[in-house]
């Protein structure tokens, strides 16, 4: 990644200006043209460095329900169980972690009731218990990374 791409990411993680021509305003700060900024943003999205560009919503405000879940999966069955869990469209992301509880995923559903239902279905399908660890309070949600 070029230096200018890093600067673009670092600047635009802080937020896009709320003015009529926001890219032109940001480009000016970065010392490049609006066309260059737009084409670099497109390239960063295409290559997957940026997952998206725009708003990050508070899911609860949009009527959704979310829950972090964990499972202790026997190593020899990991791939198989991962396939079963990921087959549920409600599984938003799934990470392997180095611990006895080695599978961590987030359920994103339309309603809280649906969360409980999907949890039961995953337990039935995999034959393994699932810990549900709903969020009770956010203290900080920055997640700005220096590029």
């Amino acid at each position: 990644m070029e230096e200018i791409d890093r600067r673009i990411i670092n600047r635009l993680q802080e937020g896009l200006p709320l003015v009529e021509a926001p890219y032109a305003a940001a480009a000016k700060e970065l010392g490049i043209s609006e066309e260059e900024l737009l084409s670099r943003l497109r390239a960063l999205l295409d290559s997957g460095v940026l997952s998206r560009f725009g708003p990050m919503f508070n899911p609860e405000a949009l009527g959704g329900a979310f829950c972090l879940c964990a499972m202790a999966v026997p190593e020899e069955a990991y791939e198989e169980v991962a396939g079963m869990v990921n087959a549920f469209p409600e599984v938003a992301h799934n990470y392997r972690r180095e611990h006895r509880f080695n599978m961590w995923f987030v359920l994103a559903c339309e309603t809280p009731g649906r969360i409980a239902q999907v949890l039961r279905e995953i337990e039935e399908r995999t034959g393994l218990p699932v810990l549900d660890l709903p969020k009770e309070r956010e203290f900080y949600i920055g997640l700005r990374l220096c590029a």
Binding site: S51, R52, F57, P59, L62, G63, G64, F66, A82, N86, P89, V91, A92, H93, N94, Y95, R96, R97, E98, H99, F101, W104, F105, V106, A108, E110
Partner: peptide, 16 residues
Amino acid sequence: LFSGRRFRQQGARYRL
């Protein structure tokens, strides 16, 4: 718990 492989990361789907 350090993270290993990411199996899936998709944008969350909301009702809206």
